[in-house]
Design a protein around this nucleic acid. Structure first.
Lengths: 341, 341
DNA sequence: TATGAACACGAAAACGTTTGCGTAACTTAA
DNA sequence: TTAAGTTACGCAAACGTTTTCGTGTTCATA
């Protein structure tokens, strides 16, 4: 790459000082009309642009926010990033994305790389590995330094910082309520392992709705899927069990879509034999047959809010106490739970 | 945020010079054992880490690569980013992601922000707006400065830089060949507007395969979808036409899935009445009913290759002439074209 | 002719590093 | 005792900016 032109080079070209050039290009009245115009023309010709690194160092501000997410090939997370990116742009910030791949080690690595001056603040959704081993030292170090930090979706309650979450409890509650309304009595739950916060919150909503409707809780209808093993085989167990449900609530789109496929393989009619709802943020639910009723998560909104919280914190226009924003879901009813009279 | 500890602060703490501290922390033999240990202990205690900005400025290297893509909520693009990110990490680079939102103006803006020293190189997939208005000045400026640049997927032929593309022609060719093999005679093409390069390349493969099989080309079977209008309504036209196809090749997953839905609404049996294939990189095709035969694009691989080309260029270990890598597709045959005997 | 203001520019510090070179103090050997 | 070598550190430049303050010249005014 050719080296870019600098103030120094322009200065030596005109035999003036660096400060003169700097002032000239900023249109300072300290510089005579004539000199200013000549410098401006020269700079334009060589397409001068101030070096960002130098500015960042001087201003002690990068105008970059770092985002660390468990995965990026994931509709929900990419939607959140989209929201973050668009909002950050409006406020004059850029976004640096790192992927933890659900690994604690990689997450720590990303923390180290990003918090050494490369970014003004961090938005994080916690890796599964971290949630599992509960090692939060990297977060604690950040908090101790008062480094601007926002957690979203997968959060750690004990870490004091701004947070944005989906109303997981409410979403699951509404979904179950809807299933009960259409007559379901035995509602299975396809959820994650307990250490995934969103999974356990959705379970909480599920349980709450059952209780509220006076339905008994049947632990054998709760299936905890292990994401590192074969999904299809695990979900099959729901249908192999002697305790057959008449409805399923899945905590994500993939679980729901797999359940739908298996149900159809078994010759079950949907929603008559079995109704299915999944949490979603993607497109799959629209294109299955029948399309899946979904708890829609507004990832874009979540991203926007996370970015707003972070930037306000960076720019010291936040209240001192930390905020916790809850993004509500809505239930998109499609054919997988729609029973025609 | 608390200000981080710097060499200067440590130096004044011990009453030594900054260079002594720097050398001590780098384990230089110039510094006595005793002083070194004391400085090291102090630095560890205060969790000293060199300021990245300062290093970047001094070394004239950021170890960051910029990525500008048309959208991020898109399975293909997020998969490419994943590939870029993982590969870049292995080589010690981080990734800064910007979204052009298909807009020429936003793309130019991103160029300006990223090429002022923030990144060592750029990976770009061209915005639709840019492809449409054919204003390539921002690219040309980069090339003139010999700024490391790699284009992927949506490329501009006339810009001289490293490129990575999908074998769009071959992918479409194979898909059509497959359709012909299963007996299709009238194959419709659901493609994009001409200015989208991947769309026209896929059309090229489509035409080539028809010619090769001695089938006549029927322009009325070629539908150019406009992404800014209602997809569903546009695709409906295929089925409203008096010229009914017995197969459809769609240049992306969404077109294919919509076609499938509409076909089923019309009571058509798939693949008997009409076979459908889509280009894909997402999950939708697996979960439709029947699942869609797909031209699978290996986005992850593409990302890896793009990052490799770029980093090699940055580190001057590329051949002088620019490379153009072609990532081949493969045809994943599913039920939407699988006719049982 | 002095005084003061206005004008136009330069010097230098600051942001936080790294590193080549200079140099005191001390040690060793002749 | 002296020359040479070693040890252990400091100085200063460099990366590219911005900005405060200082200063020399010109000009008008009393």
């Amino acid at each position: 790459m050719k080296t870019r032109i600098t103030l120094k080079k322009i200065a030596s070209e005109f035999g003036v000082s660096i400060s003169t050039v700097s002032k000239a290009l900023k249109g300072s009245h300290e510089i005579s009309e004539e000199v200013r115009e000549r410098i401006q023309a020269f700079a334009d010709f060589y397409n001068y642009k101030p070096n960002n690194l130098a500015l960042q160092l001087r201003n002690q501000k990068t105008s970059v926010i770092g985002v660390i997410i468990p995965e990026i090939v994931h509709h929900f997370f990419s939607t959140v990033i989209d929201g973050i990116e668009q909002y950050a742009n409006k406020r004059g910030y850029n976004v640096m994305v790192c992927v933890s791949n659900e690994s604690y080690e990689k997450e720590v690595l990303n923390f180290n790389v990003l918090t050494n001056g490369s970014v003004d603040g961090l938005i994080v959704s916690v890796a599964r590995g971290t949630q599992k081993n509960k090692k939060y030292n990297h977060f604690e170090a950040l908090i101790k330094d008062e480094f601007p930090l926002v957690m979203f979706d997968r959060i750690i309650e004990s870490i004091e910082c701004d947070k944005v979450i989906i109303d997981d409890v409410g979403g699951a509650y509404n979904a179950v309520e809807h299933l009960i309304e259409i007559g379901s009595k035995k509602i299975a739950l396809l959820t994650t392992q307990d250490y995934i916060t969103v999974g356990s919150l959705r379970k909480e909503g599920y349980l709450k709705a059952l209780k509220n409707a006076g339905l008994e809780i049947d632990e054998s209808l709760i299936y905890k899927i292990n994401d590192s093993e074969n999904l299809y085989e695990q979900i099959k167990k729901v249908f192999n069990s002697k305790n057959q449900p008449d409805a399923i609530l899945a905590v994500n789109e993939i679980y729901a879509a797999n359940a739908l496929i298996i149900a159809k393989e078994r010759g079950l009619s949907i929603p008559n034999d079995i109704a299915i709802i999944g949490f979603t943020s993607g497109l799959i639910s629209e294109f299955t047959s029948p399309p899946l009723t979904s708890v829609v998560q507004h990832g874009y909104l979540m991203g926007e809010h996370a970015a707003e919280l972070l930037i306000n914190r960076i720019e010291h226009i936040s209240p001192t106490e930390y905020q916790k924003e809850v993004i509500s879901t809505n239930l998109k009813i499609r054919k997988s739970t729609f029973i025609e009279n």
